[in-house]
Design a protein around this nucleic acid. Structure first.
Length: 932
RNA sequence: CGGAGCAUAGUUUAAUGGUAAAACAAUCGUCUUAUAAGCGAUAUUAGCGGCAGAUAACCGCAAGAUUACAGGUUCGAGUCCUGUUGCUCCGACCA
C-alpha cells in the first residue's frame, strides 16, 4: 500500500488513460458518523472491482469518493456528547453546534478513509467530495433554486412527531415507546348519505358508522373515515338504529359496547344483521361529525386492519405495529381519519383531496376554530371530549387502554402527531413535465442489475407522495428563503437562492447562521409586495436526501474534465432504491430532465453465517479491520468476489476460512509460476507458438478459453463467475494438470533447450495474463506477483490492461486433450491402486500398459511421446486390443539419479554414469555454461 | 401489517422444464526439487441377499442431500404457479 501511495498509483493510472473513453462510477457517499463495517467494506470493494476492471478494459475510470456529512445521527451524537458535559444544544449558538458537528464528521471521515485505503481502494482520497464542503453546500442550495425555478416547490402542511413540551419536531429516532394509558373510545358517526344506496333493506333507517380511537382529542380534526375496500362490513340492528362495523369484528364490538340483548344465562345475543357488503361500497359516501357541523368523508384505504394497534391513531405506533403481537383486539374496521394528526390519515386524505386540518398549536392547545375548547390543552381535553360525546349519544363505549405510545426522548412526555408547515417538492404538477411522469420514463431507460430493480423502482415512484424536503434541524443546508416581516410574503426566488449560494461557496452554509438577513440578501433588496426591508430567514434545513441527491450535479459537474453527467453506474445496497437512487433521480430530472445514472447495480446486505443480521449485541459481527489484520485485505476482497452480491451475503469465520484457503491456492499458483520463470527473458528466450510443444499450446489455448469467460464476466459485473472461473483455472487446468506435467521438463532439461523454453514461454504468458485477470480482485497479491515477473514494463499491474484473447478456434485441440485427461484420470486411479498394493511408491517407478481399441490407439499414438509426461510415469505402452484396460507394471531399467525417471539407458555416459539419456545432454550444457 | 428479494451437501456456488453437479472443508493415502505446499482416493446409512459359520473385507439389492415446507400445472419441476415458514431490505427527520 505504501508503494502505491509513493508511486501515486491512482494518479499514474489516470494519466495513462487520459485520452480514453470515460467510464464514470459515481460514489454514493457513506455516512460519516462511525467506523466502517463489513457492509461498507463490501460496497467499496465492489465499486473498486468495477473501477479497476473498467480501467483495465482501457477506459478512463476515475473514482471520486464522497462522504455524507450532514444529518440527524451526527446531531444526536453531538447532543449526547454535549449532555455528558452537562451542556445543552439550546444554550449554544447554532454556528457553534454546527462547528462541533463538522469536526465530528471530519474525524469519522478520516478514519473511514484510512480503512478504505487499507482495503486497496484506489481513488482521489486526498480530495473526496463532502456534502458539508462550501462548494457542495453551495451547489445544493443552487439545486434547490433550480427546483424553485421549475415550479416544483410548494409549501404545505404535513404531520410530524411533535413534542408539545419542548415545542419541537422529532425524528422517529428521537421517539421512545413506553406504556401509556389512553382512553379507548367507540364513537358513532351518523351516515349522511341515503342508506338505501348501501342496501335496500337499510332504507329509511338511522344508520351510523362505528369508529375506534385512543386519541379523543383528534376527533375535532376528523375529516373522514377509512374502510378497507375488500373487507366485508355488516349493518347490525341496535335498538332503533343501525350500526356498521366490520363483519369479522361484530362479535367483539357488541360485547365491548353492550349491543344486543342478553339471554337468561347472561350470554350476549347476536343482534340482527340487516345487510353485509364490501367496504368498497361505502367509498366516497358521507358521514356527519358527532357534534361539529361538518361532513366526514368515507374513503377506501388498504391501511385499514381488523383490530389491533395498527388501527386509528395508532399509526403513531408504527414501529410497534411492525412487530406481531397478541394484544387485546380493539377496533371496528373503520378508521377515524384526521389528516392533520396521523401519517396514514395524511396520505389517504391527500389522495381524497382532504384538507390537512390541524387545529392544534405548537404548545398543544386547540386553536380558535375548535368551539368550546379554544386554548385547552389537548390531553386535558380528552375526558371533556369523551363526556361531550357521551352526552350527545355518540359514544358507545369508553375504557382505559394500556398500550405502547411514543414519548419524547428528552422530556419523556408523550408526543403527538401534528401537521406543521413544510416545504415540498411536488410529484404531479406540470403535466408530462411532472417529476413522476419523467421519472417513469427515465426508469425505463436505465439498465437495472439485478433486473427486478426496475420494477421495484417504478413501484416506489408509483406510491411516492410529494417529497417533504424541510427538516426542523440545524446540521444541514439551510433552505435559503426569507419571509417578509411586515406583510408575511415568502421570498423563494431562484435569483435570491443563487445569491445566497454564492455566499455559501465562499463561507460554507454556516454563513446562514453567522450573518443577519440583510447580509444574505442582495444589497437593497426589498419585499416585492410591500417594499419592506425587514426579513426573517427560514430556520429549516433541507432533507439530507436532498443533499446526497444533489451530488449528481454538485460532484459530477464540478470536477472539470474528470467526471460528467450522467454517470455510467451507481452501485449501492438495495436500501438505496428509496434513498439515494430515488433522490438522485429527482435531482437529475430537475437539473437536466434526465436520469443521472445509466445503470444501477445493487448488492444485498451482509448477514452472519446463519443468514441473520449482524449486530453488536448478538456478537456475530465480522469487523473488516480484524479480517484485514488477520488475513489481509485481499482475503476480504476475495470474499466479496466469491459471493453472490445481488442477494444478501453471508459472512462468518468459517466462510472466511474457506476464502483464505482459496486465497492460498491463488498465491501458490503464482508463486510456482514465478519460481520457474527465474532466468527467463521473454525478449530473447520466447519460443514461437508454431515451435512450441503441443502440451504448452494446449495449456495456452485452455487458458484463453477461461480468460474469455472471465473477461465477459468482468464486463457484466459478474465477479462471482470471475472468481469461480479463475479458481477452476488455477486448481484444475494449471495446478493439477499443466504444472504437474511440466515439472519434469522444467527441472530436467537444459536451461536453454527448446523443450524448457517452450514451457517457460507458455508459463510466462499465462502468469502475465493471470496477474492481469486477478488484479481487480486480488489488488495487492496480483500486483506483487506482477512486479516479480521478469522483464515486464509496467510499474504496476493496475497500469496494464486486460489481455487480449485471440479468436483462434482451438476446439479440436481442446476436445482431444479433454479426452486425454479422461484417460489420465483412469490411469491415475490405477496408479493409486498399485500404490495401495505397495507395488510402486512414486508414480515414476511405474510403466503404464494401456490396451485400447483401434481408434483410441490411433488417437493415443499421435500423442505417444507426451504420454509418459502426461501420466507422470517413466514408460508407457499402448496396445491395440478388445477391451479398455490399464495395467501398472514396474518400470524397466534403473532409476536416474537426477530426474528419478526409470530408464534402461542409465549408465551409458562415461561422464555421468548414474543418469539417463535425457539428463546427459542437459548436464553437458550446464557444464559448458559453468566453464564459459 | 404492506411492498420487494432470497432459501440446493459443513461452506461457497452450478444445473435451456429433462441424469441434482463442482470445488473447498472432512477422512485416508502419497510425494518431498511449489513445502504454513503439491498430487490422488474416498464419501451417508437401517436393512436384505451372496460366502458352511464367525469376523473383517468385498459383491449385489434397496434406500440415500424429502433442492426450507405444502399443494398445483406438466409425460416430466430445483427451475413455472399458489400458499406457508424462515431470513433480509424498504415502508417520509436512521443511513
Amino acid at each position: 500500500m505504501k508503494k502505491w501511495a509513493d508511486a501515486k498509483l491512482y494518479e499514474a493510472i489516470q494519466n495513462e488513460r487520459q485520452n480514453r473513453e470515460k467510464f464514470i462510477l459515481h460514489d454514493g457517499p457513506p455516512y460519516a458518523n462511525a467506523d466502517i463495517h463489513i457492509g461498507t467494506a463490501l460496497n467499496k470493494i465492489l465499486k473498486d472491482f468495477v473501477i479497476k476492471s473498467r480501467s483495465m478494459f482501457g477506459f478512463r475510470a476515475p473514482y471520486v469518493p464522497g462522504y455524507d456529512c450532514h444529518g440527524l445521527p451526527i446531531e444526536t451524537h453531538v447532543e449526547k456528547k454535549l449532555a455528558e458535559k452537562g451542556k445543552d444544544k439550546k444554550d449554544l449558538p447554532v454556528s457553534t453546534f454546527r462547528r462541533i458537528c463538522r469536526e465530528h464528521a471530519s474525524t469519522a471521515m478520516n478514519n473511514q478513509t484510512r480503512d478504505f485505503k487499507r482495503l486497496g481502494i484506489l481513488g482521489e482520497w486526498e480530495t473526496p467530495y463532502l456534502t458539508m464542503s462550501n462548494e457542495y453546500e453551495s451547489e445544493t442550495a443552487r439545486l434547490f433554486g433550480k427546483f424553485l425555478e421549475r415550479g416544483y416547490v410548494y409549501k404545505g402542511l404535513r404531520p410530524v412527531y411533535w413534542c408539545i413540551h419542548d415545542q419541537t419536531a422529532l425524528a422517529e429516532a428521537e421517539v421512545e415507546y413506553k406504556i401509556h394509558n389512553s382512553p379507548s373510545i367507540y364513537v358513532k358517526f351518523p351516515l349522511a348519505t341515503d342508506p338505501a344506496e348501501i342496501d335496500e333493506k337499510l332504507a329509511g333507517k338511522k344508520v351510523s358508522l362505528v369508529i375506534w380511537t385512543t386519541t379523543p382529542w383528534t376527533i375535532p380534526a376528523n375529516l373522514g373515515i377509512a374502510v378497507h375496500p375488500d373487507y366485508e362490513y355488516a349493518a347490525i340492528e341496535h335498538g332503533d338504529e343501525v350500526l356498521i362495523v366490520a363483519s369479522e369484528l361484530v362479535g367483539f364490538v357488541i360485547v365491548k359496547c353492550g349491543i344486543g340483548g342478553v339471554n337468561e344465562d347472561g350470554e350476549r345475543q347476536m343482534p340482527k344483521i340487516l345487510a353485509k357488503f364490501a367496504g368498497s361500497k361505502l367509498d366516497r359516501m358521507k358521514a356527519k361529525h358527532p357534534w361539529i357541523d361538518r361532513e366526514s368523508l368515507i374513503m377506501n384505504g388498504d391501511h385499514v386492519t381488523l383490530g389491533g394497534e395498527a388501527d386509528g391513531e395508532t399509526e403513531l405506533d408504527v414501529s410497534e405495529a411492525r412487530e406481531k403481537k397478541d394484544t387485546a383486539k380493539a377496533g371496528t374496521g373503520l378508521v377515524h381519519t384526521a389528516p392533520g394528526h396521523g401519517h396514514d390519515d395524511y396520505v389517504i386524505g391527500k389522495k381524497y383531496g382532504l384538507e390537512v386540518y390541524c387545529p392544534v398549536d405548537n404548545a398543544g392547545r386547540y386553536m380558535d376554530d375548535v368551539e368550546g375548547f379554544v386554548g385547552e390543552n389537548i390531553f386535558a381535553a380528552n375526558p371533556k371530549i369523551v363526556e361531550l360525546m357521551r352526552e350527545n349519544g355518540s359514544l358507545l363505549f369508553a375504557e382505559n387502554y394500556e398500550h405502547r405510545y411514543p414519548h419524547c426522548w428528552r422530556c419523556k412526555k408523550p408526543v403527538v402527531f401534528r401537521a406543521t408547515p413544510q416545504w415540498f417538492i411536488a410529484m404531479d404538477n406540470l403535466e408530462d413535465k411532472s417529476l413522476r411522469a419523467q421519472a417513469f420514463r427515465e426508469i425505463e431507460k436505465v439498465k437495472w442489475h439485478p433486473n427486478w430493480g426496475e420494477g421495484r423502482m417504478a413501484n416506489m415512484f408509483k406510491g411516492r407522495p410529494d417529497w417533504c424536503v424541510s427538516r426542523q434541524r440545524s446540521w444541514g443546508v439551510p433552505i435559503p428563503v426569507f419571509y417578509c416581516q411586515d406583510c408575511g410574503e415568502t421570498i423563494a426566488k431562484p435569483e435570491i437562492v443563487n445569491h445566497v449560494a454564492d455566499i455559501f461557496a465562499k463561507e460554507t452554509a454556516d454563513a446562514w447562521y453567522n450573518r443577519v438577513e440583510s447580509e444574505l440578501l442582495p444589497e437593497g433588496f426589498a419585499c416585492p409586495k410591500c417594499n419592506s426591508t425587514d426579513f426573517a430567514k427560514e430556520t429549516d434545513i433541507l432533507d439530507v436526501w436532498f443533499d446526497s441527491g444533489s451530488s449528481c450535479v454538485a460532484v459530477l459537474e464540478t470536477r472539470g474534465d474528470t467526471l460528467r453527467f450522467p454517470a455510467d453506474v451507481y452501485l449501492e445496497g438495495g436500501d438505496q432504491y428509496r434513498g439515494w437512487f430515488n433522490s438522485s433521480l429527482m435531482c437529475g430530472i430537475a437539473a437536466h430532465d434526465q436520469s443521472p445514472y445509466k445503470q444501477i447495480i445493487t448488492h444485498g446486505w451482509v448477514v452472519d453465517g446463519e443468514g441473520k443480521k449482524q449486530s453488536k449485541s448478538v456478537g456475530n459481527v465480522t469487523a473488516p479491520q480484524e479480517i484485514i489484520n488477520k488475513s489481509g485485505a485481499d482475503v476480504l476482497r476475495l470474499w466479496a468476489a466469491a459471493v453472490d452480491y445481488t442477494e444478501d451475503v453471508r459472512c462468518s469465520d468459517e466462510i472466511l476460512n474457506r476464502v483464505t484457503d482459496a486465497y492460498r491456492k491463488f498465491r501458490n499458483t503464482l508463486r510456482y509460476a514465478l519460481g520457474n520463470l527465474d532466468g527467463f527473458n521473454p525478449e530473447t528466450d520466447t519460443v514461437a507458438l508454431s515451435e512450441m510443444l503441443e502440451t504448452d499450446r494446449w495449456a495456452l489455448a485452455s487458458f484463453d478459453e477461461a480468460a474469455k469467460e472471465i473477461l465477459t464476466a468482468y464486463e457484466t459485473f459478474d465477479f462471482q463467475t470471475v472468481y469461480r472461473t479463475i479458481y477452476n483455472l488455477c486448481t484444475v487446468t494449471l495446478s493439477a494438470r499443466y504444472f504437474d506435467i511440466i515439472k519434469d521438463r522444467l527441472y530436467i532439461y537444459a536451461p536453454k533447450s527448446v523443450a524448457r523454453r517452450s514451457a517457460q514461454t507458455a508459463l510466462y504468458e499465462m502468469t502475465d495474463k493471470l496477474c492481469r485477470l486477478l488484479a481487480p480482485i486480488l489488488a495487492f497479491t496480483a500486483d506483487e506477483a506482477f512486479e516479480n515477473l521478469p522483464h515486464q514494463k509496467f510499474a504496476s499491474v493496475h497500469l496494464a490492461e486486460f489481455p487480449r484473447i485471440s479468436g483462434a478456434d482451438n476446439s479440436q485441440m481442446l476436445n482431444d486433450w479433454e479426452r486425454i485427461f479422461s484417460i489420465r484420470d483412469i490411469v491415475l486411479k490405477s496408479l493409486e491402486e498399485a500404490r495401495a498394493a505397495k507395488e510402486i511408491g512414486s508414480s515414476l517407478e511405474a510403466k503404464v500398459v494401456l490396451t485400447v481399441d483401434k481408434e483410441t490407439t490411433m488417437f493415443l499414438i499421435s500423442y505417444f511421446e507426451d504420454l509418459r509426461y502426461i501420466f507422470i510415469v517413466s514408460q508407457v505402452e499402448v496396445h491395440e486390443g478388445e477391451a479398455f484396460s490399464v495395467k501398472i507394471e514396474k518400470a524397466d531399467g534403473e532409476k536416474c539419479e537426477r530426474c528419478w525417471n526409470y530408464s534402461t539407458r542409465v549408465g551409458e555416459s562415461e561422464n555421468y554414469p548414474t543418469v539417463c539419456e535425457r539428463c546427459v545432454p542437459a548436464l553437458n550444457e550446464i557444464e559448458k555454461l559453468a566453464n564459459a
